[in-house]
Computed example of a mutant assay.
Amino acid sequence: MRGPGVRAALALMTVMLLAGCAALPEVDRGDAAQRAFEERSERLAAIETWRLVARLGLDTEREYWSAQLNWRVQEGTHILDLSGPMGRGGGRLTLAEGQPARLVTRDGEHHSARDPDALAQRLTGDAIPVSGMVYWVRGLPDPARPFEHEVDAEGRPIRIRQAGWEIEYGEYEEFDGESMPVRMELQRDELTLRAVIRQWQMGDGSA
């Protein structure tokens, strides 16, 4: 059970994360919106190099924590620098296709697991969907799993339901010619993960 101080801090952080969040756009179930969604998905999935900077907040039955995240992707390798959660001191999480997920904490500890979800579960005790986030953070469904979705007139997801998670997108902004999520919330059972993305870079930035 959270004490008054923890609850107050949680309330403050929630306000910070959601401050200024615009009302969700109207769902468009027309064929044109669905085609726009498919075209957007294909276009974003083809971008192999990207980077984001975000603030995360995770609320579970037991506790609340927040973290800063710098996530960059190049040639199929994902490098996530976190300050906060994994091992509670932060560290660098490296994901590469066909290889175990690896974390090096700021204290120099090394951890690995068969996949990023198993590693996050072991270190935090919570089922954090890192593998799904690889897609969801860009407003894409994981192509390997069934999903349901709702989109706006521009084909941008308003909600994606996949693997027991509901992902709600509260706001988009344009970066490098693409409309990218800047506020999102993921929910499953008693776990809520919020992300406020302050910066996107699509491509290698050399153009």
Rank of each mutant, 00 (worst) to 15 (best):
G91K: 02
P4I: 12
R194V: 05
E150T: 09
T60Q: 06
F175D: 01
H110M: 10
V151S: 09
G125R: 01
M16P: 02
L10E: 13
Q99G: 10
D59R: 03
D28P: 06
D59Q: 02
Q99H: 07
A101S: 02
Q187V: 05
G177S: 04
M180E: 00
R102E: 13
M184G: 06
M86H: 04
T124M: 07
G5D: 15
L80Y: 02
E178N: 03
G132T: 00
E178C: 04
D126W: 10
L10G: 08
G205F: 00
V27F: 04
S179Y: 13
L58D: 07
P141C: 09
I79N: 13
G108F: 02
R35T: 07
D189S: 12
G203N: 00
T49K: 04
Y169V: 01
E38F: 13
R40T: 00
E148K: 12
G170I: 01
C21L: 05
V130F: 01
A207P: 05
L17R: 05
M202W: 04
E61D: 15
L44S: 00
W71C: 02
T77C: 08
L95P: 06
V15D: 14
E48V: 01
R2T: 06
G90F: 00
E63V: 05
I47P: 03
G132K: 03
L17Q: 10
P129R: 06
P85V: 15
S112K: 03
D81H: 10
I197Y: 10
V53E: 09
Q99V: 14
Y169R: 08
R72I: 01
M13G: 10
T124Y: 06
A207Q: 15
R188F: 01
G205R: 02
E185I: 03
V182Y: 11
D142K: 10
T60M: 08
M16N: 10
R194N: 04
G5I: 15
A32Q: 13
D126V: 11
E154P: 02
Y172V: 03
V53D: 11
A32D: 09
F37Y: 10
I197K: 02
D28H: 07
V137L: 11
A127N: 08
C21Y: 02
G205K: 03
A8Y: 03
P100F: 00
V182I: 12
H78R: 05
Q74D: 13
A118W: 04
V182P: 04
R88V: 14
D117G: 08
D126C: 06
A22M: 11
R40F: 13
I79E: 11
W71Y: 06
G30C: 08
E178A: 11
Q162K: 15
A101E: 01
P129C: 02
P4V: 03
S112D: 14
Y172D: 05
N70V: 14
H78D: 06
E171N: 07
R188I: 00
Q162Y: 09
L186S: 08
R88W: 14
R138Q: 10
A144V: 02
T192L: 12
Q74H: 12
A113E: 09
A36R: 15
Q201A: 08
T105V: 01
A8M: 10
L82M: 08
A23S: 12
A127R: 06
A101W: 05
R198N: 07
V104C: 08
